[in-house]
């Protein structure tokens, strides 16, 4: 197996809050084959060199969203990024940017989860339907209006990419806005108006400075930047409509 003779140097940002003042880099020499992912490289280190290396992972096929990290400074899923593409250079892996580090490559995602919860990510029916009435009917046009925005795997790479989230951790951020948009665009749902309040609020879409890096790093082509843009327009329209017909005025 000539492949397995090749050795790549993996530089890992290590941090154990119980013993380290600050994160620091450690280098490991990892034998690899062509089909080995960066995740497998990290697993090799944990299995052979240091069992305390800590990272999240599960499915290995880019659908569970667990294994995001900075790979040479770019937010990526480590399971679908391959060591061969970096060899013979050294590769550096670090915890996702813009999040507090809990340990090694594990970051604190509780803020992100709260944002998901805040946007009412469920159908609030426009017209309630009983189960014996069967499914809602959705034309291809209605289906296509939201389907792209259902593909988010909550990997949070877009947050690691977002400069505004880096500056203001309260910004609701790309994935949550994309999910909000997904429900607003679903013909079964009738709560867009409620969600729009969040869109236009202080932590909403107007934080975005339209860098578009979120969409660039999205491994599932959700295009959150597009969702944010559409909602900027919607929120602006909403604002002017409210201005034109103040509360209590005729509709």
């Amino acid at each position: 197996m000539p492949d397995s003779q090749r050795i790549i140097e993996i530089e890992v940002l290590r941090y154990n809050p119980e013993s380290d003042k600050e994160p620091h880099l450690e280098v490991y020499k990892v034998p690899f084959s062509d089909d080995m992912s960066v995740l497998q490289g990290a697993q090799y280190i944990k299995d052979h060199f240091d069992g305390s290396l800590t990272f999240r992972w599960s499915c290995r096929m880019a659908i569970c969203g667990s294994c995001g990290m900075m790979i040479n400074g770019i937010p990526k899923l480590s399971c679908e990024t391959f060591l061969r593409d970096y060899f013979p250079n050294r590769i550096r892996i670090e915890a996702m940017a813009n999040f507090p580090i809990e340990k090694d490559l594990v970051v604190d995602l509780s803020g992100f989860i709260e944002k998901l919860e805040s946007i009412q990510p469920y159908i609030i029916p426009r017209e309630p339907r009983s189960l014996d009435q069967g499914e809602y009917i959705q034309s291809p046009e209605q289906f296509n209006a939201y389907i792209q925005f259902t593909s988010c795997i909550n990997c949070t790479l877009c947050y690691a990419a977002c400069p505004q989230f880096g500056l203001n951790p309260d910004f609701i951020g790309p994935a949550a806005i994309a999910l909000l948009h997904r429900y607003n665009m679903d013909s079964r749902d009738g709560a867009a108006a409620e969600r729009m309040e969040l869109v236009a609020a202080e932590e909403g879409v107007f934080n975005c400075s339209a860098v578009g890096y979120c969409s660039e790093v999205c491994p599932k082509h959700v295009d959150p930047a597009n969702a944010v843009n559409i909602n900027k327009t919607n929120a602006a329209k909403d604002y002017f409509l409210r201005f034109l017909s103040p509360k209590g005025g005729s509709k």
Partner: peptide, 11 residues
Amino acid sequence: IDDKSSVWNTD
């Protein structure tokens, strides 16, 4: 078990 820490001890 290499890791003796409390925080995120996946080992």
